[in-house]
């Protein structure tokens, strides 16, 4: 093998770099955070859809809501058990889930997603003090 030394050195460096994320995070496995409910949300007992559904699909639901509201002019949503909701992140979702940091950010930070909702939609004031 020509240049055997160089090739093997290169391979070793390559393997180290590729495996970097694994050994860098070794022993630091974080527990998946549980979103916290406000007393108001707890009292309500249910969201617009089931908890399981919301956990898995809230992003698609919100995505569809924004099209329905902005583009089609639908403003109301018939939720679980026929309960009516205003389709509004700022004026409905966050009225119950007013603890954005505990409810939204915790998980979003954990999975490292950065939804840009908050660039425009104003977060509830309580959440800001919670830091």
């Amino acid at each position: 093998m020509y240049d055997g030394g160089k090739i093997i050195t290169g391979l070793i460096i390559g393997v180290i770099l590729l495996s970097f994320p694994f050994w860098y995070n070794l022993g630091k496995a974080a527990k998946f955070p549980e979103p916290k409910l406000t007393p108001k949300a707890k009292q309500a007992g249910q969201c617009v859809e089931t908890k399981v559904y919301m956990k898995a699909h809230h992003m698609q639901l919100l995505n569809k809501w924004r099209d329905d509201v902005v583009r089609k002019g639908y403003r109301l949503y018939v939720g679980l058990n026929g309960k009516m909701f205003k389709m509004s992140l700022q004026n409905e979702c966050l009225k119950c889930h007013s603890n954005k940091q505990e409810f939204c950010d915790k998980c979003h930070n954990f999975v490292d997603v950065k939804p840009y909702c908050w660039e425009c939609h104003i977060e509830p004031k309580e959440a800001k003090g919670g830091k």
């Binding site: 859809e49 699909h57 639901l61 569809k64 329905d68 002019g73 639908y74 403003r75 949503y77 939720g79």
Partner: peptide, 18 residues
Amino acid sequence: LEEKVEASEGKVRRDPKA
């Protein structure tokens, strides 16, 4: 592109006051 959100199909309404 987008996953179908079955649960929300057909559940949107206009505000009757509009």
